[in-house]
Nucleic acid binder design. Sequence first.
DNA 1: GCATTAATTGGTC
DNA 2: GACCAATTAATGC
Length: 232
Amino acid sequence: MNCLNCTNANCLVKRSCFPLIQKDYPLNINTINCKKGQTFILEGSPVYGLFFIRKGIVKVSATGYQGKEQILRFAGAGEILGHRGYGTEEVYRISATTMGESVICHISNQDLQQLFRDYPNFTYNMMRFYAEELNRSDTKVRKLAQMTVREKVIDTILYINRKFGQVNQLLSLTLSRKEIADFAGTTDEQVIRTISSLKKEKLLISKGRKIGIPDIDRLKKEIAEHNFFLDA
DNA sequence: GCATTAATTGGTC
DNA sequence: GACCAATTAATGC
């Protein structure tokens, strides 16, 4: 597989290096076709390059004490994975699992170094990406520490909406209650209770296991005191 | 349809 | 607000 016929305009490699990359440029992209629920980066395994999502949605998580899962973020097409391990770390500190059918691109450490040398624009864009990531993880810490459970659940739902949107008034990415809890840093029972009271307040609707937001601005108001880092 | 998994509810600490 | 247990709903095969 190579990047020439890739249609993913969001990809950082494509954006930064094309149309410069020619047919004979020695770049080896491994593409991995994944079904739902496949873990293609495993916490603790040696770092062997960077991953880019070509298609699909991936959850990034780390395992804590007694196997407790903390979901750190969800990533969509064009986003970068495994970057924190690159350079300094010898093993990945996160796992990455597909939420649905996905296509993942992988670039080896060697090819990556070559790209960094050949395409300063790519290097610069990567640096900007790292800076943004640092900001996001910073705000994530503050949210976990300062928000109430109710606020964290609302924030999680708004985050999913912001990132992946709604279809027919329902969030297009369906998370289990436990996944919401693992992202928000609470338990699935708390999530269930919060969601059901939000439904009573008409701030949320649901069909089966899917959740919808009837009025996004009204829901945003619920966490307005934390507006400071709403967009993270 | 049945078996498995997820959601919900109630109770205890 | 977490953890546990019991019940009920949803989903996969």
